[in-house]
Design a protein around this nucleic acid. Structure first.
Lengths: 207, 207
DNA sequence: CGACTTCTGAGTCAACTTGTCTCATAAGAT
DNA sequence: ATCTTATGAGACAAGTTGACTCAGAAGTCG
């Protein structure tokens, strides 16, 4: 099929999605209605209906445009890599857009199976990548994993979620260190304190 | 003023609040409208308006009826006490009503200052009680607190939140042990493993 | 450049929801 | 037995939702 290259379509779509994202961020999911989105996007109400007949689809599409942070493939040495990942995750969770999408996913009403699905996908993606990293670290002799590795995501991501959702505030490097220690016993070859951490990672998207 | 002892009033109020709670649990905050609540409560729509002219007040009142778990005053020895508290908290977070209220609080739209307030109150209450417990344990020589104690709530409650909100599943006793270890180094006088844990605590309310 | 195709925005319309009010009635108080 | 008062049914205006039409603008292509 011919790619929808008509500039009018893409312009409308972008404006509408941007408006929907703004509304989601500022007032939550219930504010994302055809009428309000159309008004904010400076677009006719019918145009919104044309592209998104169902309002919930507009919401999920708007959310899909917000890149959710998650882990990439792990690299050795694992500890500094993981430290960087957690730092990125913590910083991302502080962004209004990401926070809004996170709360929407968490809320994930039974009425919205798409949202529930996406939430579960995010959770399993993060969990799998995190466990892969820990396994790699263990194989490399860097780490002796403590306890059930299935608890690792909860132990390491949970506190970041708490900071983002319930108790807003910055996540200190010290706290991230403690998250790493929660994974198990690290056999630091050298006191690799303060690994270089500079690049403010762009958000990454799910596969 | 004369106490509203009219049985009709209390009957209506209870029915309405119960219906509101059901709707909140099943379909989330947007489902709590006058019309739907009235229909489910088997009550005239006007009656709901009479008691709660504003819909958001109905929502907050319905939430207030769901007791949120938090910590009581700590007792020595602290470790088994804290273990019990975390177990209760984890179990409460699995209850649909409590979960629904938690997600609603977390979502805490900017549109609803009452909800934001209540969320902050809950967070500070839990945080204060938890820190008090850790301080007590340290004074009793039971524990050497690690790192910044302000991070303790995130480290210990966060994982439970993760399990409740993102990655539904049971919280094992082993996981709770690891949460306790995240607080610092416990100087166990004796191997007080498997402390008696039987009473399925009733939910407690905030002060 | 000019003819064509397609998207847009304004508007209309019925169905539905929301918030307010009225009133006969039945439940409770005295 | 009588007086009070909450209730439920319904009427009502105002606003929202979803669906449709249509002239005209924007973009494409010969």
């Amino acid at each position: 099929m011919a790619d929808t290259t008509d500039p009018r379509v893409t312009r409308s779509r972008e404006a509408i999605l941007a408006a929907a994202r703004e509304l989601l961020r500022e007032e939550g999911p219930p504010a994302v209605t055809h009428q309000r989105v159309a008004a904010r996007a400076g677009v006719g109400r019918a145009t919104v209906y044309r592209h998104w007949p169902r309002p919930e689809q507009l919401l999920t599409d708007a959310m899909a445009d917000v890149p959710m942070p998650f882990f990439l493939a792990p690299a050795t040495p694992v500890r500094p890599w993981l430290e960087r990942q957690l730092r990125v995750l913590a910083d991302q969770l502080a962004l209004p857009d990401v926070l809004a999408v996170t709360t929407t996913l968490v809320q994930g009403a039974r009425s919205q199976p798409q949202i529930t699905t996406r939430r579960d996908r995010l959770a399993t993606t993060i969990g799998r990548q995190l466990r892969a990293a820990l396994t790699l670290a263990e194989q490399a002799g860097e780490l002796r994993v403590a306890g059930d590795s299935r608890d690792a995501p909860a132990l390491m991501i949970g506190p970041l979620l708490y900071r983002g959702l319930l108790e807003p505030g910055p996540v200190s490097d010290d706290l991230i260190d403690r998250l790493l220690d929660a994974a198990g016993t690290w056999t630091t070859d050298g006191p690799a304190e303060d690994p270089p951490r500079e690049t403010p990672h762009p958000p990454t998207t799910e596969p």
